[in-house]
């Protein structure tokens, strides 16, 4: 039996982050998914992971003080950035404790999230019509007694609405748990906005469309290098700030960042 284009390239699933990366930075997507070149993330991403760790601790264990949760978040951040040369580390660290406090004050009102066989995060896997590989993801916080799933996003400035990439992520969650409402909690060190995903079907259509675009792209060649080098990276984008990513770009495309004036 002939394998589909995903399988021919060793891709057995998709995810929200994968399709969003394909849309935003197709060259980086190809470099990571087809050439196997992993890249690091900056201090801002570690800030998100750290805040989530502190909020998770405080939601699942209401007896924990906010200070304990803040400390847990800072510990996680320190671990993640121990070897980081990102100059934004100190700036990001300073926002972690207040963001944890802001998020806990709001989200503790939802009660205690549900667990899945001892795990605090819930794995989802859903097949979408017309897409030959499943989508896999993890839910941040699911409140089954309210029928609400919340995904936590940390920011420097509060969003006024759900971004399209996040909406696509929410649409995938909704496809897996259609009876639940999807909310995104955007938290900054000063405030929080919790927004409901209003029309997941619209965004799910886009998810499927992107997945089919990926499939068509993969169908052009069985040679991952040929596909990757058919694209060209935008090294000016923050996606390529990581030194490892830039080094990989140089290896693959022979590029160095264009010099600043």
């Amino acid at each position: 039996m002939s394998r589909n284009a995903f399988e021919r390239h060793g891709l057995d699933h998709l995810s929200a982050s994968s399709i969003n990366l394909f849309v935003a930075q197709p060259a980086m997507w190809a470099m990571q998914k087809l050439m196997g070149r992993k890249t690091g993330v900056g201090a801002a991403a570690h800030r998100g992971t750290a805040v989530e760790a502190g909020v998770e601790l405080g939601l699942f264990d209401p007896a924990r003080s906010v200070e304990e949760c803040q400390q847990a978040a800072l510990s996680r951040f320190n671990t993640l950035t121990a070897l980081s040369a990102d100059p934004a580390v100190e700036k990001e660290r300073s926002g972690i404790a207040p963001a944890v406090a802001v998020a806990l004050k709001e989200l503790r009102q939802y009660g205690i999230p549900g667990t899945a066989e001892g795990s605090r995060q819930h794995r989802i896997e859903v097949e979408l019509p017309g897409v030959p590989v499943p989508f896999i993801g993890w839910l941040d916080f699911w409140f089954p007694e309210h029928g609400i799933i919340i995904d936590l996003k940390t920011q420097g400035r509060l969003s006024s609405k759900i971004s399209d990439p996040h909406a696509r992520q929410g649409a995938i969650y909704h496809a897996a748990h259609g009876n639940n409402e999807i909310r995104f909690a955007y938290v900054t060190p000063q405030k929080i906005g919790v927004y409901r995903l209003e029309d997941p079907r619209l965004h799910l259509d886009r998810v499927v469309s992107i997945a089919k675009s990926i499939e068509r792209f993969l169908s052009l060649s069985d040679d991952p290098a040929a596909l990757t080098t058919a694209l060209s990276p935008d090294l000016d984008s923050f996606y390529w700030n990581d030194a490892g990513a830039r080094a990989a770009a140089q290896e693959i495309w022979g590029l160095t960042p264009e010099a600043a004036p």
Binding site: Y110, G111, I112, A116, P144, R183, G193, V194, Y195
Partner: peptide
Amino acid sequence: APAAHMPPPAQVSASVGAPVF
């Protein structure tokens, strides 16, 4: 338009979340 902040739902129970899956 900008989205509206959704308030937390009224609390049904303060007990531990239900095991799922």
